[in-house]
């Protein structure tokens, strides 16, 4: 028990990133119908992605809690693709999360500033 209490910085950072991943995905999808690899691309661009595999379970979970829905659409090459969009509930959740993030950001920043 005691040895596990050692703080693994790498793990903490990964946790922080992971905790915000859902919020980020909702943000990306909020701009309209989004194809899965576009989500991945946006996350990669923002450097928030560790491995792509983490995103799929998350999308499924979000869909199951009816924050997301998807439509199948024809693709120019290959089989049809899933396009994700926010449900009204998802939009509401995103609004709440945005507010939470703002206040979190503010408080953490002030703490960082104060105790740096």
């Amino acid at each position: 028990m005691t040895s596990q209490h050692q703080i693994d910085t790498e793990n903490t950072r990964a946790q922080m990133r992971k905790g915000t991943l859902e919020f980020c995905i909702l943000l990306i999808i909020s701009r309209g119908k989004v194809y899965c690899s576009d989500i991945l691309g946006a996350l990669r661009e923002a450097d928030l992605l560790v491995v792509e595999g983490t995103v799929y379970p998350l999308l499924t979970r979000l869909k199951n809690s009816s924050l997301l829905s998807y439509d199948w659409e024809e693709s120019p090459s290959g089989p049809p693709r899933k396009y994700y969009s926010l449900t009204p509930k998802g939009k509401e959740t995103l609004k709440q999360l945005t507010l939470t993030w703002r206040s979190l950001d503010k408080s953490i920043n002030s703490l960082v500033k104060k105790f740096k």
Binding site: R13, A14, Q15, V51, G53
Partner: peptide, 15 residues
């Protein structure tokens, strides 16, 4: 894509 541990284990994450 990431290994199975990375994908599925959100709690005991080892990035």
């Amino acid at each position: 894509m990431g290994t199975v541990e990375e994908i599925t284990d959100s709690e005991e994450e080892a990035a």
